Amino acid sequence: MSGNLPPKVPHVFDDAYRGAIAAVLEEQSPNDLIGAHQFRGSERDRVAGAAFVARRLPHSPDPDRMIVCNGTQSALTMLMTGLVGRGGALAIEALSYPTMHQFAGMLGIELCAIPMDEEGILPDAYEATCRNRKLSAYYAMPTLQNPTTAIMSVSRRQTIAEISRQYGVAIIEDDIYSLLPRDVPPPLSSYAPEISWYILGTAKAMAAALKVAYIVAPSPDAARSRFWPGVRATYWMSGPINVATVSQLITTGGADAIIDAVRAETVARQAMVSQRLQGASIGALPEGLHVWLTLPPELHRDRFAASVRELGAEISTSDTYLFGEGDAPNAVRFGTGAAPNRQEFERGLNAIVDAYNR
């Protein structure tokens, strides 16, 4: 229960994926497909990627602004290296994606934690940090934020975009949780496209190890300069057959069918959470892959997590996601999709509910 992977939907995924692979191998010579590097993705894959991100952006971007990557993590390390660099500073919410600690340590980047509320980053605190520090970029997750499930309002997005523009801070937007909810605001990047690097991956909406992500650069020139063969900070290029298969799924509607099935299973599991944890303080969306459970003062998060573990399930405490100083809130996060089936999910949920009601 500690992971927030999408639930498996083999009744839809398997046939769609088999059909897409078969079509790719029938339509293209395998040796031609993998006989040369495709550093930003082939033209076909960038066109498919533009159609994929158009699910969220107001307009389908120019394919020359697209970069096809080997998952969101490789995209983040490339952008952190190129936009921030060793010795530079990156703004991040006070609670955020924990792997950013490892990336920053590996790359020699300072993380500046910004206080947040129920919508995410606080504009006044962000503006003060921009004014007092030389920030190179801001790592943003304004839609179903990890771990809090916060969703930034349109007005907040506009304000944060304007502050970033005013101080010349690039926006690195990780929108990976946005494809399952049906009604969420446009990406933050849509309010400042000229300074934004927008990332939309497949791992949280289709399958965890699909490992295809799309970056929308501010311009074609920016895409070429940041992702050219001489930039060897990490290996960002995705396997051509894997990308071609995803492109096939996008163009034939298979991706839509998979996302719909993942959404349906997620909604069913979140309904179980709502029913079993009635009265508890939970942050969640019906289509969200994780739940942020705020605990009462008498139930400390460490003891609660230990009790859940004793009952056979793993969850994460808020300390895992803490950036900056101070104490983490008395809260835990658990995922809805990692359990291989609904029965196993119910077993894990029972452990959480039993520990909560002790």
Rank of each mutant, 00 (worst) to 15 (best):
F345T: 14
A54Y: 02
A89G: 09
L111K: 05
A150V: 02
M78G: 05
P58K: 08
D32A: 08
E298S: 09
T252R: 14
R347M: 05
A306S: 11
D354F: 05
S96G: 11
P115G: 15
P340A: 08
R182Y: 06
F39D: 10
V9L: 02
E118G: 04
S318L: 11
T234R: 14
E314F: 13
M141C: 07
A233C: 15
V353Y: 04
D175V: 02
M106S: 15
P329M: 11
P240D: 00
W292K: 07
R276T: 08
V308M: 12
V353P: 07
A161M: 09
G71M: 12
I250H: 09
C130P: 13
G288I: 03
M152A: 14
T81A: 13
Y97F: 14
D354T: 15
K8D: 09
L322H: 07
V154A: 02
P147I: 00
H290P: 10
V262L: 07
L107K: 01
A161N: 03
A203C: 03
V216R: 08
A331C: 10
H101I: 08
D62H: 03
L349K: 10
S42Q: 05
V353G: 04
D327N: 09
A75R: 00
R263K: 08
T266Q: 01
A257C: 03
I67G: 00
Q248T: 08
K134S: 03
A91V: 06
V24Y: 12
S178Q: 03
M100G: 04
R46M: 10
E344T: 13
V169Y: 00
N4A: 01
I172P: 03
A355D: 06
G3Y: 01
R269I: 04
E346K: 07
P220F: 07
I21S: 00
V231N: 15
R358S: 09
F323I: 01
T336L: 15
R347W: 05
D64K: 14
E162G: 11
I250A: 09
P193L: 09
A255D: 01
A284E: 04
I258K: 14
D32P: 06
T129L: 15
A50V: 10
S274M: 06
R86S: 15
T252F: 15
A351H: 13
S60H: 00
H101N: 00
V308G: 11
I176G: 11
L293W: 14
P61M: 00
A36S: 11
G87H: 06
V68Q: 13
R131M: 13
G283P: 07
G3P: 01
G87P: 04
P297H: 02
A203Q: 14
L210W: 07
G326P: 09
P10H: 10
I258P: 10
C130N: 03
D174C: 09
T320L: 11
A261I: 02
R226T: 15
P61R: 14
M237W: 05
G168N: 00
M272T: 07
P30N: 07
A20N: 13
C69W: 04
I163Q: 03
